[in-house]
Amino acid sequence: MSKIKIAFFDIDGTLIDPEKKRITDNTKKALLKLKENGVKICIATGRPPEKVPDFKSEGIDFDAFLTFNGSYSFNETETIFENPLDKEDVKQIIQNGEEMGHPVVLATKDRTEANGLEEDLVEYFSIANQRIKLATDFEELSKDEVFQIMMAGGKDEYKAMLKDTKRAAVAVWWPKAVDIIPSDGGKGVAVEKVLEYYHLSKEEAMAFGDGNNDLEMLKTVGLAVAMENASKELKEAADVICGHVSEDGIYTYCKENNYFE
């Protein structure tokens, strides 16, 4: 009998093939079988809540959602953990973006809107089959609780993005854009909070991911699984590597390791 009682899944590149923009039938089957066997299943994504696919319409009922790279985590009945960006940091990052010539996307619980567009930022959103909405009241939006900021830019720009901030960090899963989150947050912290909420241990948890923003999550569970299509750094941090997202990697791994019949 498996000791695993909870499983965490990234979305883009893990549950959903970025090329086909959909979850495969076998991946759906794996999630349903895990649920049938008493394993709690949780989403752990950089997406805001409003941009999480409607898996329920596919018959899949997730137990918890760790959104904004874990900064806002909840289930059907209540908030489990929330950790917005510092309001002064939000102002500073917007200013940094202006100085760098980069627009930014602000994500609150209910809205994900930008003060401008640029090619790499548009492409970043398109990977998850999303489009950027421009805010008509950007200054007012910036005063709300912001859980994540998205900005285009490469590794050589990270320092400038975070200039003069007190509690902000970049979370990266694509080379030409970033998610900016609280430095005391991330998927790993959120996984710890969810395990505490459900009174489960690290050893009872497994996680699947593909990007560097999944690194802390994989370090926080007893069984860390990287997709075949994962980054080099994530594969090195994982306990095992399963198949490619486009080739039913999650389903094959779970079936071969007797997580379901």
Rank of each mutant, 00 (worst) to 15 (best):
K159F: 13
Y259S: 03
G186C: 02
P175F: 03
S246E: 08
V105S: 04
A64H: 01
N37V: 03
K91W: 00
I43P: 11
S201R: 11
F68V: 08
D110S: 14
E261T: 09
D89S: 02
K56H: 14
Y259G: 03
K255T: 01
Q95I: 07
N96W: 01
N129F: 11
T14D: 09
T27C: 07
C254N: 01
M161P: 11
E76P: 00
H102N: 07
L200M: 11
V90A: 01
F138M: 08
V122A: 08
A128N: 07
L223P: 00
F138R: 08
N75P: 13
N129D: 15
D63P: 11
W174V: 10
N83V: 08
E196I: 01
K56G: 14
G116A: 00
A7W: 10
T252E: 15
T45S: 10
M150Q: 08
E50F: 07
I181M: 07
V189F: 07
E113Y: 07
N229P: 06
I6W: 03
A237V: 14
D120I: 01
V191C: 04
E19T: 14
A230H: 02
S231F: 04
P48T: 11
C242W: 08
W174A: 09
N258C: 10
Q130P: 00
T220G: 04
S201A: 12
G243L: 07
N229D: 09
K159E: 15
I180D: 10
E247V: 00
K159M: 12
E99W: 01
E139Y: 09
V245D: 07
P84L: 01
N213K: 15
A30V: 08
I23R: 04
I181G: 00
A30Y: 04
A160R: 14
T136F: 11
S183D: 12
S183K: 14
I132V: 11
K40T: 05
H102Q: 04
E145I: 06
F62E: 02
L141R: 04
R131Y: 01
M217G: 02
K202I: 08
N96H: 00
N83L: 15
L162T: 14
F65T: 05
D17L: 02
I250R: 12
E50H: 12
